[in-house]
Design a protein around this nucleic acid. Sequence first.
DNA 1: ATGCCTCAGCTCCTGAGA
Length: 256
Amino acid sequence: MKLATWNINSLTVRLPQVLDWLAANPVDVLALQELKMTDDKFPVDAIKQAGYHAQFFGQKTYNGVALLSSTPATEVVKNIPGFADDMARSISANIGGVRVIGAYFPNGQEPGSDKFEYKLSWLKGLRLWLREELATHPKLVLMGDYNITFDDADVWDPVGLKDTIHCTEEERYELRALLAMGLHDAFRLFKQPDKSYSWWDYRDFSFRRNRGLRIDHILVSSALKPLVTSCVIDKTPRKNERPSDHAPVLLELGPV
DNA sequence: ATGCCTCAGCTCCTGAGA
């Protein structure tokens, strides 16, 4: 089973790239973030023609998430039960025997800001809900744009970016709390190239200089961990003419 | 501190992203 996550920064702009990428990478599940469109604009037909079912949860201008799957998705849940939120940030479903959660974590803008406080409360809401979700669905994958780095290895300039957004102790505390409840960073289960990142700023030739952050993650539950055979970042689409600022992350599992 | 780049929208500037 192959799963992937990709923040595509507007599905309107990136639909051709998503279809191209799926043709080259026929995954079973693709979680998308930052659709930036309302549900009535979602390209159901194009996705269907590509051979995929689609579950989506969008809003105008910002945010928006979707799960594309080669087999039907069931028990679809939008956002975090128990956490009131007016933004479309997560979508969950059972697909191929796995509970899949695709999420677009809040950015947080700047430590100390209102948006940062919202990010921390969202993270706490996610953590409290996940505890139950893991008990109900032991085979679980949480993937998406976390907007948090685990540690210095995920940051191109750990000194210059110390305690800035995506790199603060408060954010990383919440990320480690997810690991403490039995989730595992699939990417680090394997030897990876030094300076592996999933996002590069559009400005200052950041991609060419590999000035990036690893903020897109795939976490797997303990029940799935032994089944993981690979996890990689695919930098290929970042080289496209009008790329998303994020690259997809891919996970491969043995038979579930 | 600001610009640098990209995208959406009550669009020719602004807010937000990260």
